[in-house]
Amino acid sequence: MPFDSVQIARQGGIWGALDALAASDGSAGHPYVGRLRQSMEPLRDLADAAHYLCLLHGRHPGVIDHALPHARDSVERAWLEAAAEAFAAERALLVQLVAAAGPLPSTPGQAESDNAALHQRHAVEMLSQSDRAGCATGTALALVLDWTAIRAVLNSAAERLGLEMPETRLPPIEETASVVAELSGETIIERAILFGAEQLFAQHRGLWELLEARMEARGRA
């Protein structure tokens, strides 16, 4: 869904467009995410999600780290630095959670699943290293916005495993909105930000589709 200047204006500027994109395409709206957040699925499904989220976002450098060198001004750079530092803590918690969850649950088509997830990781890494002005930051913004729903899934897994999960230190929504406002004004930059965000959300949706398919495959096995 490429955005033009008319669409951006109609949706309340770039922040309105980004917020609308997160609501329509982000993880929070995926039915499987809702079931995992509410612990409606077996622990093995939560563990499966943690493993694959770690495959996608558990390595350093990650999305935000890759985006940082592409920052164009001090406000953008300061937000990315704060987000990168906070996400390092999220990454450590994710690794800890995977260790507590144990091995991946036995699932038919494991090799195909791994291959699909690796392709998703490659796509995310390419987006976060894009030289197109605004794209890398848009990818990082989308990750921070989408992490609220993802963190809720991880919190559910941690609760089932008896682990304590501290509050996230990722930049609050108000601060993120303020930074997005600072980046607005140039249509070409706004489009690139929204493109990066759109593609990150798409990769996350693909991951949830993969995880749901794996859950169904285990049920049939």
Rank of each mutant, 00 (worst) to 15 (best):
E159H: 06
A116H: 11
A116Y: 15
L127N: 09
A101Y: 03
A111S: 14
L141D: 02
D65T: 05
A100F: 04
A101I: 08
T168R: 00
R160S: 12
G102T: 11
F87R: 01
N155T: 14
P166A: 04
S156R: 04
L55T: 11
E90C: 07
E85W: 05
A158T: 12
R72V: 14
Q120T: 10
V144H: 06
P166F: 06
A89L: 14
G138K: 12
A88S: 13
L118F: 04
S128I: 03
A152M: 07
R151P: 03
L93G: 08
H122L: 09
P172L: 08
E90T: 07
R169L: 12
D65C: 00
R72C: 05
T139D: 03
A133T: 07
L56E: 09
C135S: 04
V153R: 11
L68D: 00
S128V: 02
L161A: 10
R132T: 15
S156N: 03
R72K: 14
H66K: 05
H119Q: 10
V153P: 02
E159V: 05
R121N: 08
E81G: 02
D131V: 13
H57I: 04
A149Y: 08
E90N: 03
T148A: 06
A158W: 10
L80C: 03
R169C: 02
Q129M: 15
L97M: 09
M165W: 10
F87V: 00
A123W: 11
V63H: 04
V144S: 07
G62E: 10
